[in-house]
Nucleic acid binder design. Structure first.
Lengths: 194, 194
DNA sequence: ACCTGAACACCGTTCAAGT
DNA sequence: ACCTGAACACCGTTCAAGT
């Protein structure tokens, strides 16, 4: 078979696609995940309908902007599992994800909202990542380093929540690492507690 | 002096004020803190300009809807301080606040956003509450029950963050108490930790 | 096959005109 | 003193008309 299984897109379409993503990244970096789609089309110099043709929903656009990063975070999780002891692997990955959280304002909201919406384009790539990272949690739990009543979603929600906090006010942004530390400490099993 | 220090408002103004609040509560309960102001005016049967005359900003409206609750939460904190031992008083109050968090969708966002905005009408009443509740934290810390590197804002941010999580998805809403428990556990001083 | 922009139904905010 | 709604500048989304 040749390199085109589906029909090759027209040249102008390919160029528009690329141009949209380029501009969208810039605008979303400025205005956050709720950025004006109209503004993106305007700045990209294309018709509004063209934007919608390439990305029928906002999530579709976000997925294209974030997909690679989700994949990389999944790969990082897989790598950490083999190179690091359970506890280190988990905390390291969580720090990585916390950093990811800062690339766009509103990112944590976007991710969390689409968590249980299987129709969202963000669902699949995010789920894959969460499943890979979930193994790090299981490992840490089996090693007795994390409470057993913490689910993967619990933990994921908490990291995103700390990211959300950091978005709310400058002074809180400065405390992000500290807050993440506090939260993660709470996940350790109670040693000598009632 | 008589009962009117400032001039008494006209009857129609008083009625509109009350009607707005009544309808606003209903609409915000339905749509969350980002509810359409136009919709509120429409449903209240008043002109949009009238809504703006009574509440020049959305925060002003929210403050009027939430002010009493903030005051009550402050009073609860003051009461708990005298009736309960430090640790109980703190966790009890936090549970109370966590419950408050559920009255309107988007409430945690609204509160957190205006935390460092002294111009917001939500600022004052919320600050007063936080200061009273802050004493519960201090007491718990002095009794050695809570890590000393936790500030009042840290803790307030974390409770709101758990409220935010619960807003994001139904399954997470069911875990809200569990998540709050996890987070609060993380605030206890490390007994025998490295 | 793809692009375009007008059209529609919404917002928030302001302000001249009314009573 | 207070109310009203039109006016303005924005949205997101759709779709007939173009090439």
């Amino acid at each position: 078979m040749t390199e085109k299984q589906t029909r090759a897109p027209r040249l102008d379409a390919r160029r528009n696609h690329a141009r949209i993503l380029e501009v969208a990244h810039a605008v979303v970096a400025e205005q956050g995940t709720q950025a004006s789609l109209r503004d993106i089309a305007r700045r990209a110099g294309i018709g509004l309908g063209t934007l919608y043709r390439h990305f029928p929903t906002r999530d579709e656009l976000l997925e294209t902007l974030l997909g690679e990063r989700f994949d990389r975070l999944a790969a990082t999780a897989a790598a950490l599992e083999t190179t690091h002891p359970p506890a280190d692997a988990l905390t390291e990955w969580l720090a990585e994800y916390a950093a990811f959280t800062t690339v766009y304002r509103g990112l944590t909201s976007s991710v969390m909202t689409t968590l249980e919406d299987e129709n969202s384009s963000l669902h699949a790539s995010c789920l894959a990542m969460r499943q890979t990272a979930g193994r790090l949690l299981s490992n840490a739990q089996q090693a007795g380093l994390v409470r057993s009543d913490v689910t993967g979603i619990d933990l994921f929600a908490l990291v995103n929540a700390v990211g959300w906090i950091a978005e709310q006010a400058p002074s809180l942004s400065a405390r992000r690492d500290h807050l993440l530390g506090l939260v993660l400490d709470g996940l350790r099993p109670a040693a000598g507690r009632p």
